[in-house]
Design a protein around this nucleic acid. Structure first.
Lengths: 235, 235
DNA sequence: CTAGTCACTCGCACACTGTACGACACAACT
DNA sequence: AGTTGTGTCGTACAGTGTGCGAGTGACTAG
């Protein structure tokens, strides 16, 4: 038997609550609300404890460190993603729905991209997400390592595209501006600086319906990725 | 004339160094070294100042805030990316080279993905990267908004894929392990927990040459994306 | 040569962070 | 009744980013 270093996931919570007490679930739920409302920088153990009506260091009995708490939060959020089975609408629509679900989850939890790149996810929800995702890829006829790669490609795209979107949205939020105000500023700034090609590009990306633009961007890119997978399958 | 809020990029450095003194370039260079060596969490203004042999708050004369410094660092790093012109090898090989160059830059500066999703890049190097990238897309025959979307898709993929890679590598580094050690641990842990599909997937992803696996993953996904763009062009 | 004005440096202080430690309280079991 | 385990929390430490105001050196005007 190999001795593996402990991790949040391997060692489970003791049973027996006994008296009225803080629980890990409660902490996770409250932290999630705080994080969604104020962003990653706004989450501190002390503020979280205050919101729970407990002493700051009490949390440490339930959760080893703040980083571990964030691991729990990430997995919690993975659980919100819907992935249909391949029998419902085939692999392609399945991946499409998966991607859209993942996008909306990220938009709902804008701190996700930032922390995603600090730690690989290995929580239970991440696992079932993997399982269901691979089922879709399998239905497309891709197997072995390539299955992992293909699923990873879809997820990389979604995370990258939506990550760029939330970066802009969060910048506006932090600056206390509306998205349109921010975008107008960016356009004005680019107007004075960049070369004609980027000026033109900035104009395209900063006029009209910004929400719609992000949405179109996502769909266009997703189409590219799915089409690329389809090409791979046919070959 | 619209009054636009100041940004690192709009307001340039005064001339006239006068006496021997700290410079913004020097700060950026030293910060970059520290960041590459110790990661984002290891960069503090005080440590940086110590490394520069100056008082902590002296930096604030040259750089408004730490966040602004990071903006400068990001743009510095964008400058390291090579993008060939389309006349050299056509749009497809051009994008391929671009993607590989971007990947190796991210691997060299593993803190990049983490900060990328906090702020949109608008520095000069980001601009010329955009210009040159769009030239390749244009050569593929994609124009207007779709050009921005297509370029964004390539970059999203690269950032996502390489981001996942550095997440794993950094986890090993922080834990003081080699990549192989970490990966072996992950495999053992997955062996005891996950369902058969993920167990199989974990085995695939944790045996053999890990570096090569990351590389293959990147190439496979990149192929998907480029093939998808090619399909878009033909249609 | 002196006076003044910039460009720049830096010590101190403030409010805040994560978390180790050890003292406490309450429930259950012997 | 005493012991053990589960859970809480005040205090303290070592750090963080950065505002403020005093100080220093070089250059320029009179």
């Amino acid at each position: 038997m190999v001795c593996v270093k402990e991790s949040i996931w391997t060692r489970q919570q003791k049973a027996a609550p006994a008296r009225e007490t803080l629980t890990r679930e409660q902490i996770v739920r409250t932290a999630l609300e705080a994080l969604d409302a104020e962003g990653l920088a706004g989450l501190s153990i002390r503020k979280l404890a205050a919101k729970l009506g407990s002493g700051a260091t009490s949390l440490y009995w339930h959760v080893p460190t703040k980083d571990d708490l964030i691991d729990l939060l990430i997995d919690e959020v993975w659980g919100e993603i819907d992935i249909p089975g391949p029998e419902l609408a085939g692999w392609r629509s399945g991946l499409l729905l998966f991607a859209h679900s993942m996008r909306s989850v990220i938009l709902r939890h804008p701190w996700l991209p930032e922390v995603m790149y600090t730690r690989p996810s290995q929580g239970p929800n991440a696992m079932t997400m993997g399982t269901r995702g691979l089922a879709l890829i399998d239905a497309a006829g891709i197997t072995g390592r390539n299955a992992d790669f293909a699923l990873g490609t879809v997820m990389s795209f979604v995370l990258g595209n939506t990550g760029a979107e939330v970066a802009t949205r969060e910048l506006a939020r932090r600056g206390g501006q509306s998205l349109d105000e921010l975008v107008a500023e960016v356009r004005d700034r680019t107007e004075t600086i960049a070369d004609p090609i980027m000026r033109e590009s900035a104009r395209r990306r900063t006029t009209g319906d910004i929400d719609g633009m992000f949405y179109d961007s996502f769909n266009y890119g997703l189409e590219i990725v799915l089409e690329g997978i389809a090409a791979r399958v046919k070959a």
